[in-house]
């Protein structure tokens, strides 16, 4: 287990460095950041001044290592646009994004687990088909479009929910649904297949033969066994959701990391974009790493392979 853990950790670190390097380079080749920061119609002198001030005139590889060296110590530099420490900006906005991510994941679980169970209990029936349709719709619909549909229906027509902002818990309802719905199919299918596999096993047959009540068999003996891989997948889905919040946060004007990433990309605020990419990829890699460990702990075959 220790060797397996060390191997996965090494791989996770390599992925992290690769992500940071590629994102750093891609951002730099997408356009001269000095031109964006200097503003529309700035003279060559003004652009040159900005370039020197922020060190964009030095070789890319030197810029990368300087940035990476500081980033290891939690110093992501200052935002050239807002002139604030990037680390402070991330701290201020992290709460909103984490709240949204966790709410969306909870919503996805609350929706997909019962749907998966229903589909497993009545496989290949109209119940199964409906459950599958509900979840597949979530994956088929682009989240920004679904978000706008929710706004029109619940915000504009019914006027039940606030459309934008993050002042109260009611502001999080629509973004949670828009973001969480997308993750439903993956979890629902896993619950369905896991439940079907466990329901067909000998110990369930024995339990039914003993005359145990159906809810007890379903929740205590079946779901408990089928839910283990779902936990691992859910952790990975949380990583997806933190990344996916970029679009949702800008639609609902939630002042989180996603919204910050969106506006920072548009104004070429490179230190902020880099820090967010690094932070979100680190969280994703960490969650994937934990999921791997979890799976390996539960299934020795993974460790030996």
């Amino acid at each position: 287990m220790l060797i397996y853990t060390l191997k996965r950790l090494g791989l996770a670190l390599i992925v992290m460095v690769t992500v940071s390097l590629i994102s750093f380079m891609l951002l730099r080749v997408s356009g001269d950041p000095a031109i964006s920061l200097a503003g529309e119609g700035a003279s060559n002198e003004e652009i040159e001044f900005v370039r020197e001030q922020y060190g964009f005139d030095r070789p890319l590889i030197i810029q990368y290592f300087e940035w990476a060296g500081r980033a290891i110590h939690g110093d992501f530099g200052n935002s050239p646009y807002l002139n604030q420490p990037v680390a402070q900006m991330l701290r201020e906005r992290m709460g909103v994004t984490m709240t949204l991510g966790i709410c969306a994941l909870s919503f996805a679980m609350i929706l997909s687990i019962p749907l998966g169970m229903l589909a497993a209990v009545r496989p290949n029936t109209w119940i199964d088909r409906i459950a599958l349709s509900i979840s597949v719709m979530g994956q088929a619909m682009p989240s920004f479009w679904f978000g706008l549909i929710l706004i029109i229906f619940f915000g504009v027509y019914l006027r039940w929910l606030p459309i934008s902002g993050s002042d109260t818990w009611r502001h999080f309802i629509m973004p949670t649904i828009a973001l969480g719905y997308y993750a439903t199919p993956a979890i629902m299918r896993l619950v369905r297949s896991g439940m079907m596999e466990v329901l067909a096993s000998d110990h369930i047959r024995t339990a039914r033969a003993k005359g145990l009540r159906w809810p007890k068999i379903l929740f205590k003996h079946t779901l408990r066994n089928a839910i283990i891989p779902v936990v691992a997948v859910a952790a990975v889905q949380l990583g997806f959701m933190l990344g996916g919040s970029i679009v949702i946060e800008s639609i609902f004007a939630l002042n989180g990391l996603g919204n910050l990433a969106w506006v920072s990309i548009s104004r070429s605020d490179l230190p902020v974009v880099q820090a967010i990419v690094l932070l979100l990829s680190t969280i994703y890699i960490f969650l994937t790493f934990m999921a791997d460990l979890c799976n390996a702990f539960l299934d020795p075959r993974i460790r030996s392979s």
């Binding site: 706008l148 706004i151 029109i152 915000g155 504009v156 006027r159 606030p162 459309i163 934008s164 902002g165 800008s250 639609i251 609902f252 004007a253 919204n259 969106w262 506006v263």
Partner: peptide
Amino acid sequence: WRTLPEINTQMAELMTGS
């Protein structure tokens, strides 16, 4: 004065009177 990056969201807020 609010900052709302998405035009569609601005329009929805205007339609609701917010």
